[in-house]
Computed example of a mutant assay.
Amino acid sequence: MLDDTDRRLLRQFQADPNLSTAELAEKAGITQATCWRRLERLQARGVLRGQQALIDWRALGYEVEVSLRVTLDKTQPRAFDDFLAAAREVPEVLEIQTFLGQVDVRLSVIARDMAHYQQVYRSQILTLPHISDLDALMHVARIKEDQVLPV
């Protein structure tokens, strides 16, 4: 699927996505035209899905992160659909993951402080539909957070 040139290009792109095409081509050891064509091909194949701005929510005053493990009432036929639709509407929910096993859903929730978290928890999380069990894990430290893939 990927040849050595694609891998070299992706490594350089991951290391510094702000490089111009000319700078990226130079670092990857290819011509600018080749770099452009390969980037276009990687995008067309869905390998590169675009670029995004990463905003540090802590810099905006959010200090609390909680991971909520949710078990849904699976006797309700629309439990997953209803829950996920409602959870998407909570602005403080940054991530929603679904699982197979005891835990059905994990929500990553942020808040400015504990008082704000308690308000979000009581008014928006506990009112989500079809919850049969809820477990909160208070985030203490992020040991590794890396989006760089070993290409």
Results as ranks from 00 to 15, higher is better:
K27E: 14
A33M: 10
D73L: 05
S67I: 05
F13T: 01
V93D: 11
K27A: 15
E40P: 00
F83Y: 15
V90R: 04
R8E: 15
W57Q: 09
R49G: 10
L39A: 03
N18L: 09
G61R: 08
P77S: 12
G50M: 10
Y62T: 03
G46D: 05
A25N: 08
C35N: 10
V47K: 00
W57I: 15
E63A: 11
L94A: 08
R11C: 03
V90T: 08
I55D: 01
R38W: 14
A59V: 02
R38M: 12
W36G: 01
S20G: 10
A28Q: 03
A86P: 00
R69I: 01
L48V: 15
L48I: 15
V70M: 01
K27F: 06
L10F: 06
A22D: 11
V66G: 00
A25G: 14
R37L: 12
Y62Q: 07
R69D: 12
L94C: 07
R38Q: 09
G61A: 06
T31F: 04
R7E: 13
P77L: 07
A33R: 10
A53N: 05
L9A: 10
L24R: 00
R49I: 14
Q43N: 06
T75W: 04
I55P: 00
Q97K: 11
L68W: 02
D73Q: 03
P17V: 11
I55Q: 05
Q52P: 00
E26P: 01
F83A: 04
A53G: 02
T75N: 09
T31Y: 04
A86I: 06
L9R: 07
W36T: 09
L48N: 01
F80D: 07
A79L: 08
L94G: 13
R78G: 08
Q52E: 11
L42M: 06
E65P: 00
A33F: 13
D56G: 02
A25T: 06
T71G: 10
A86E: 12
Q52T: 12
A15T: 09
Q12F: 00
K27N: 13
T34N: 14
Q12K: 06
Q32H: 08
Q12L: 03
R45L: 11
I30E: 07
L84P: 05
A79V: 09
E95D: 14
E92H: 10
R45A: 14
Q97S: 12
L68R: 00
R78D: 15
L48K: 02
Q14E: 15
S20V: 08
C35V: 10
F80S: 07
V64C: 02
L94Q: 13
D82A: 13
F83E: 09
E63S: 09
R49V: 15
R8N: 11
I96S: 05
L10N: 02
A87L: 06
